[in-house]
Every structure is written in structure tokens, then in C-alpha cells.
Computed example of a mutant assay.
Amino acid sequence: MRLIDHHCHGAVTDPLDRARFESLATESDRPAPPGCSMFDSQLGFAVRRWCAPVLDLEPHADPEAYLARRRELGAAEVNRRLLRAADVDMFLVDSGYRPGELLDGPEMAAAAGAEVRGIVRLEAVAEALPEVTAAGFADALSAALDLAVASAVGVKSIVAYRYGLDFDPLPPSRREVARAAGRWLRRGRPRLDDPVLLRHLIWAGVERGLPLQLHVGFGDPDLDLARCDPLLLTGFLRATRDRDVSVMLLHCYPFHRQAGYLAHVFPHVYVDVGLAVNHVGARAPAVVAESLELAPFHKVLYSSDAFGLAELHHLGALAFRQAFETVTGGWVRAGRWSAADATRVGDLVGSGNAQRVYRL
């Protein structure tokens, strides 16, 4: 199965001690209790089983042996081995989060031996604006966004983290934007979480005509999961369905069945189960099977949402390929699908849908 990872981040460039490695192997923002380890998880077991051989260790290597080998090889070699083992043809990279700590686009391409294209994080563009007035915020953002998307293939919003998916679905007026910008500027330009400005950013993204990625569901505790159910986007999806813009619902777990419904009924909605596939480990076939229940097969894409650890880029691709083969192979053996149809759907989900939607 050829893969295009339609949403991920870069890998860290610095050596990692155990605490730092474990912090990147969980969505929690706190360490495990004393005497416990994040290696005791589905993801931790998957790292020891599938990544250890890439680093010349036996499968199921002890965590200390694994981390020692990682340090021995060095970050650059670890990244090169694991990214190339993923065997991904193209990575669509959101570099708007902690960019100085990660491989940038050219570095990622060189390490992986693959193409890399950019996804613009809308909130990062707004927060990077130079000195601006409240009245001039909208025009300054428009100019900065035009520049940012010139070489990008999509845009992304993390409104799920900054507010929730239960935002007003309609674009704010210019006066509302100016007032909200004034409030934000008077607060000293902190993290942008004003719901009016977030709506403005999303609609500014819609106006650019590129696929719009939205974080949905599972993530770190900075979000309120109850407000990340994609069904809360129904009004926004109704408002955008005639705008010729694809809306990409990222991750979706544990709401991947709700997301599948939205992809079923709205022609411009697409889904993936990135991030979750890594964290559920041996249970990945169950999640992948559920993602294929209701969503049309031309609406499902592959992503890893890997961040920081090159292990996550490798495992995301490996686990997805394995899970897809397990699930569809079972349907073929049961006579429910033909082998030719399974191969064709694999081509669509793995790379064909991304090529079409992102115009790659």
C-alpha cells in the first residue's frame, strides 16, 4: 500500500533521555507515577516490537536497551532509519507547532527520502503578525495568509484546542473582528483563543480554497474532549458545503463513527484515524474497521499525526498497513469483498484520495 501521510509533524533533532522520550510517547502532559512507565502501553509495546529491529535490536527489546541504542546511534541516524522504514511517498507537514525543535521541511525530506509539502496552521499565522492595530488586523492577516499559503497544499485550525468545535458556524463581521482584535491586543497578544478571531481565521482559510484540516477528538489535556465531537461542526459543514472547499476531519477517535457519518452525508467532508492508530497499538484493526463502516471509501485518508518521535511516523504507517490488510483480508476471505476491490480501496485510502483532494 503506497502511503501519503496527509497530516503529521516533524521529528525531534536532539538526543532524548528516558523522561523526554516518554513525554513524547503519550498525549498526557504529566509523567507516569513513580515506578511506572509510559512503555507499559499499547504504543510502548509497539515501539519495542516494531521499532527495535529497525535499530538492530531484537523484537520486544527492553526499554533501557532500546533507549541506549537510540542514544548510541544519535538522533540523525535514528530519524533517518525510522522515517525511511515508514516507506511513505509524501508527508504533508504542519510545522506551526514548536517548529524550532523539529526537522523542518527540507530536513524531513532528506531524512525520509520522501517528498514533503506544507500545511499552514492558521493560528500560528495570526500570532506571528508584526505590530498591528485592531482595525488593521483583518487586512494584515489576509496579506500574511496569502504569503503563507503560496507554497502550501492545505490549511489547518486547532479551534478544538483554543475554544471547542461548538463555535458559531457563520463568519463574523469586519466590525466584530476589529473589536475582538482590540481585546486580544489589549491583553498583550497571548495565545489566540478569542472565538470571534478563531472563526475569522477559519473562514479566511475557507476563502483560500485549499483543503481545511480541523483537529477532532483525541489529543492532549489542553483540550476539552467533550467539545471535540465532530457532530458539533454540523452547522459549519452546512455553511461550507457549497464553497468548493474540502474539510478534513483529523484523528476523530473516539468519535470516528460520528465523523464517518458526516463524511457519508456531506460531500466535502473527509476523515482519518491518525494519532489513534499508534496509541491503540494491537487494537488498530478494530479502529480501522470502524473507520470503514459508514464513510465512503473515497472519503477516508491515511495520516499518522506523528510528532517528535520518528517512531510514530514509522509505526503509523506500519500499523495502518497491517490493520488495513487484516480487516480487508478477512472480508475477502469471507467472500464479502473481492481481492481486486480491496486493492483498489487500499490505493484510494493510502494515497489516491490525498492526491485528488490536495491536488498533489
Rank of each mutant, 00 (worst) to 15 (best):
L3W: 03
L3Q: 06
I4V: 15
H6D: 13
H7S: 01
A19K: 11
F21C: 07
E22I: 08
E22D: 11
S23G: 13
R30M: 12
P34E: 13
Q42L: 10
F45G: 14
V47S: 07
C51Y: 14
P53S: 07
D56T: 13
L57W: 15
E58N: 07
H60E: 15
H60T: 13
A61I: 06
E64P: 04
Y66V: 05
Y66A: 00
E72M: 03
A75Y: 07
A76Y: 12
N79H: 01
L82D: 00
V88H: 00
D89F: 00
V93S: 09
V93T: 10
G96D: 06
G96N: 03
E101P: 03
A112K: 07
A112T: 07
R117H: 13
L122N: 01
E123F: 03
E127C: 06
A128F: 10
E131D: 15
E131L: 10
V132C: 14
T133M: 05
T133E: 10
A134E: 13
G136Q: 04
F137V: 11
S142E: 15
L145E: 04
A148W: 03
G154R: 03
Y161H: 08
Y163M: 09
F167L: 11
R174I: 07
A178V: 00
R179G: 06
R183C: 09
P190Y: 10
G205R: 02
R208G: 07
H215K: 10
V216P: 10
D229C: 08
L231K: 01
D244R: 14
V247N: 02
M248T: 11
M248W: 01
C252A: 11
P254S: 12
H256Y: 08
H264P: 08
P267N: 05
H268Y: 12
V269E: 08
Y270C: 09
V271K: 07
V273G: 06
A276H: 04
R283A: 15
V287M: 02
S291I: 11
S291N: 14
L294I: 11
P296D: 08
P296E: 04
F297L: 14
F297G: 04
H298K: 05
L309M: 04
L309S: 01
H313V: 08
G316K: 11
A319H: 15
F320P: 02
F320C: 02
A323I: 01
A323Q: 04
T328I: 11
G329A: 11
G330K: 12
G335W: 09
G335R: 06
A340F: 11
D341N: 12
V349N: 03
G352L: 01
N353Y: 10
R359W: 13
